[in-house]
Computed example of a mutant assay.
Amino acid sequence: MLLFTTLGRYLTLRFARAIISVFGTFFFLIGTLDFVELMRRAGDSPIATTPRIITLALYRVPSVAEQIFPFAALFGGMFALLTLSRKLELVVARSVGVSAWQFLQPAAVVAGVIGLISITVYNPVAAELKRRATALETRLFVRAGSTTSTAIPEIWLRQRSADGMAIIRAAGALPDEDGLSQVAIFNFNQDGSFKDRIDARQAFLKPGHWDLLDARIISAAREPRNVGSFQLATNLEPEQMRQSFTPPEAVGFWSMPAAIERTKRAGLDTTRYELKYQSLMARPLLLIAMVLVAASVSLRFFRFGGVTKLVIGGVAAGFVLYVATQLSEELGSSGIVNPVIAAWLPAALGTMLGALALLHQEDG
């Protein structure tokens, strides 16, 4: 097998260096642009000092940069193959009987290994940093006099308890506590009939109940009444509550199965989390597909000309595959397509089409 020969190790090193270099370049550019944008926003916050802005930018960049792994595989593969072709190293390899499929083995292995590392090591770190970035951003850029996180949209929860079912709507989450602000709770009896509505300024989740502050209770059976404090039974746990408005990007790969199970127990929709989990699982195959796309446009000898058009075509094909992946994920997150199909179909089709193009080019 070529992978374990001297030539295989050389090609493996070249492909790994090219992909990592491209990813590092994009990572630096994203970090720089994000830092500039955060410095612009810092003028509205007196506590947003430069060291804190730098820290926030470093927290945010890994999660954003995670989206460019497919492009790193595409551009890195193209760069490595074009360099090898320009230096006639591929010509020499072909002259001794090494086929395109053989010297693409190291590229596919490198792409697969980088994909595995990205989901098992990089993704959990990026998710943890994203959670820290959300908390820090809330403290730095929250509007003066407001305790609601501006980074979190309106929150909806559903719970079941001994008193029946309740639907909870909140304007936002409290930044540093297990609580919600500007809460409206719609309570239903065990038979599903409407019981009452409770509006509260804040709601704090305690073991087995909600503590509601400045509550107003409205029901059809009696006159509305205001109470300074009110307790409502609940089966929700703090982790379940946070999970309901935690984006899938803030949940690491290893924590995703437990997060999906907690979300199911809370009676919430798990489609977004299942889709994210399956997308992470499919990433190694997607990177391999990008390498095959890169190979289908980068193996032409320079002396034959037309390399520029092929490169442009390869970049366009890579973008089309990425757009198709995003479109498929959108269909999956909306429930139109099964999350497993939505996550795996673009990667599988990209791999097959890349292999088909290489078969036509090399063996056709």
Rank of each mutant, 00 (worst) to 15 (best):
P51I: 03
Y59N: 10
V109A: 08
R197W: 12
H209A: 14
A258Y: 09
P51N: 09
A108P: 00
A42V: 03
Q182G: 15
W156G: 04
A171Y: 08
R139S: 09
A316W: 01
G313N: 08
T6G: 15
R197D: 03
D176G: 12
A200T: 09
F71E: 03
F103W: 14
T134W: 05
E37C: 11
N235A: 13
R131F: 00
S298P: 05
L157M: 06
A348E: 07
W254C: 02
V291G: 02
I19A: 03
P238I: 02
A259L: 06
L7F: 15
S296I: 07
Q326G: 08
A215D: 00
M1I: 05
L140H: 06
L321V: 04
T351N: 07
E89A: 15
A107N: 12
K206N: 14
T270W: 02
V110G: 11
T308A: 14
G314W: 05
I117H: 06
A233R: 15
L38E: 10
A48S: 10
N338A: 09
F319M: 04
T234R: 02
G77W: 03
L236G: 00
L345D: 00
W210L: 05
P51Q: 12
F194V: 15
L174Q: 14
S333H: 01
R242W: 09
L331Y: 04
T147E: 14
V22W: 11
A282C: 08
L212Y: 02
S334N: 13
A184P: 01
I217C: 06
F26Y: 09
A80N: 05
G172E: 01
G179Y: 00
P46S: 10
I167H: 08
W344H: 12
A170D: 03
S279L: 14
A342V: 07
L327I: 06
F26W: 07
D199C: 05
K309G: 13
L84K: 11
I185M: 02
G252K: 05
V22Q: 04
N187H: 12
V293Q: 00
R17M: 15
G267M: 13
A343E: 04
E274H: 07
H209S: 14
G97A: 09
R60F: 02
G97H: 08
M241N: 06
F301A: 11
S328D: 00
T150L: 12
A80L: 04
K195R: 13
A250T: 02
L29C: 10
G76V: 04
E89F: 06
A221N: 14
L353R: 13
S219G: 13
I119E: 06
F253L: 11
V109Q: 07
T32R: 12
P207K: 09
V113Q: 06
R131V: 00
